[in-house]
Amino acid sequence: MSASSKPLLTVRGLKVTFPIYGGVLRHKIAEVRAVDGVSFEIRERETLGLVGESGSGKTTIGRALLNLLRYLSPEVQVEGEVLLHHDGRAIDLNGLSRRALKPLRPEMQMIFQDPYSSLNPRMTVREIIERPLRLHAGGGRGEREKRVFEILERVGLQPDAAVRFPHEFSGGQRQRIGIARALVTRPRLIIADEPVSALDVSVRAQVVNLMMELQKDFGLACLFIAHDLSVVHHVSDRIAVLYLGTVVEIGTAIQIYNEPRHPYTRALLAAVPSADPKSPRLRGFPLRGEIPSPLKKPSGCVFHPRCPIAQPACSKEAPALVEIEAGRQVACPYALEFEKLSARRD
């Protein structure tokens, strides 16, 4: 974890809106804002953890950064800036044409959650890994072959894996293939969308360790998306906590893990199972109810219906992210008074 302070990717005010069709003429009758004004920064060689429950918009953010939404679901509207710092310039990826985007594609690659659907079942492993090289790297057949086998070895697969098809591998091995595919073009940023949550627990650590090792060796920055803090605090330099499409707290992994400030972060942390009964995390509290539908977002602070310290003002105005200490921002004006307020409630 040798993160520098040079920014690699800056996200400002990212908003993603899905339309909802209905009625007699199937026109747009409503919209869902899955991501509502998210801003963060990923520095070179650092890992930023992005944590949120399902429905919080974390996967959508990952896809928006890679400009995938425009092609996967064209009716979706993506606003805001996604600035990639490239050759001393900051290029706004959002709204860039496909052609202009293509040379930048090798810089950012993705590792997907589901190791089964993320590999094309009709292609051999070699075709899967070689494809990005054909698109970008140039070089002859021999050069590409060399790089394919190099990367296969790096992710811990035998060379004869190259002629096999994905269905012949286990989940963990498939995920290694996915990592090889992402790394073969030597990207600077990896977006890892819950890369281990679909794997058997016994295999998770191996894949996570492999990723951390490769990250160090390749000098990668990484956006590590996860639905709980258990893996994230282990791999991340900094962590951003997402709730219903907004960032509620952002800070270093140590700050977030040891001293959560936002009530939601405290709840998330309380949900992490621990082997140590004296762990300070148990001071948190269990969450009440379910995450609300993004269709019916609460007014004001989106967390207030589930918040143990909600104040009358919370339902009126959405709180902004405020820096409360060096490197930490929290979107809750009462975050520092949590103990006092929750005690009074009891």
Partner: peptide, 11 residues
Amino acid sequence: KDYAAAAISQG
């Protein structure tokens, strides 16, 4: 499926 997203993200 994710392999389509992977293909698009590769350009």
